[in-house]
Design a protein around this nucleic acid. Sequence first.
DNA 1: GCACGCTTTTGCATGAGACCAATGCGTCTA
DNA 2: TAGACGCATTGGTCTCATGCAAAAGCGTGC
Lengths: 240, 240
Amino acid sequence: MNNRFPPEGAPVRRRNLFAQVVENLGVRIVRGDLNPEEAFPKEADLEAEFGVSRSVIREAVKTLAAKGLLESRTRTGIRVLPPVRWNLLDAEVLGWRYNSMPPAQFFSELFEIRLMIEPDAAGFAATRATAADLLEIEQAFQTMTDAGLAGLPGIEEDLRFHRGILAAGRNPLLLQMGNLIGVGLLISYRFSRESFVIFLPMHKRVMDAIKDGDADAAKLAMQRLLTETRDYLKSHIRDD
Amino acid sequence: MNNRFPPEGAPVRRRNLFAQVVENLGVRIVRGDLNPEEAFPKEADLEAEFGVSRSVIREAVKTLAAKGLLESRTRTGIRVLPPVRWNLLDAEVLGWRYNSMPPAQFFSELFEIRLMIEPDAAGFAATRATAADLLEIEQAFQTMTDAGLAGLPGIEEDLRFHRGILAAGRNPLLLQMGNLIGVGLLISYRFSRESFVIFLPMHKRVMDAIKDGDADAAKLAMQRLLTETRDYLKSHIRDD
DNA sequence: GCACGCTTTTGCATGAGACCAATGCGTCTA
DNA sequence: TAGACGCATTGGTCTCATGCAAAAGCGTGC
């Protein structure tokens, strides 16, 4: 098996062959290039297309199947599952999907969900946070502030703050939303690199309400933070 | 490679070897039998333990890795990821986890999230549902009613109803919650096989509000349905 | 219409080598 | 001598190749 992809000249990405196949197929599926119902290449075809061995193809297919994008049966072959089956909250799937989506749609979809989850999560955090939870949130806020003053994007720190609140909500399922927020922040940054320091005071209000154990205030503060961020981003979308 | 599992005498399950390994390891991981940090068996050891070939083990590991339960690197070997990384909303992971969890904890975790999502989803459905969406919801309700009158559990139908509302909310991320509701209904049924017909009128109120396009009413009706169901289940938990 | 082979495609097994990153050892320097 | 740096070793996964088994759709023939 020679004639690897990508073709000569492209920068050689030193990653697992397997991961490259996964990403390539994954992106194509969520972009809709490969529809359900339509014929999907069989293992042998994929081998030929990518120029890799059958094991690599099989492991890639299993990975995509585990994320709900594919299904593979003997005799029938491989087929793309309908979008309902996709694990959209999987970090990778989220990334693939949001990189091929108009920003406006992305933002409305994202913040709609965040507004359902995070205010309530903040409310729970206010009544349930342990000392360790509070410390984590405070430290996250501190590093976020530092990053802001230093003119850095501070995505990592922002994510850490929101994750900290989800964790303090003490419901493991809440933490799943961390992926969503993370990918969201990343993409948001691609559309608008304005400083986020203007939102620091609002973050602080959320934190203070949680520290005070005031669930209603925490909920409202988070709601406010999210709607303001959403509106800000909506009006600052850059077309590129 | 002989000496397959399960040992002689056990009922022969006609499933893929691969799926069996995935389930076995998956359950052990989410149950906490195999902690992160702790040493995890390497491929060769797993081969020996399960009595299957490398291909099967590797594909199983890839599958679990895709669900965020494992990570496998060259030289370092395989290791269990911390629970934060697990894709808890994956249908399989959800099932494994909730089968090894005290019912009370399960119900509180489940309904906390459902109450964040579904009332808002119902609200969106009221303003966004297409004719097809409404038809689907009505049909689901109809089959649910029929099942109830026939004395059947009607889990499938119930799930269809709730999924229909999520779909009518017209935000793809909402549909992810379908898994959660589905597994939830299944487990609920294990704890309490009482008829659910008493909740039919409440379902109807949700549906009618959506048909009327009354978002607030839909939201409230859904909220009511969920809290009542939750309280009912809590007081009917059977210890078995 | 039904049973029964045929054939296509994935499922499973196995051997062999490449590749990668911890680990430990030795040497060199301040 | 302690510490830093480079280097070989080695234990694990990654990739390739090949063969056979098993499942399931399809058609044939009764």
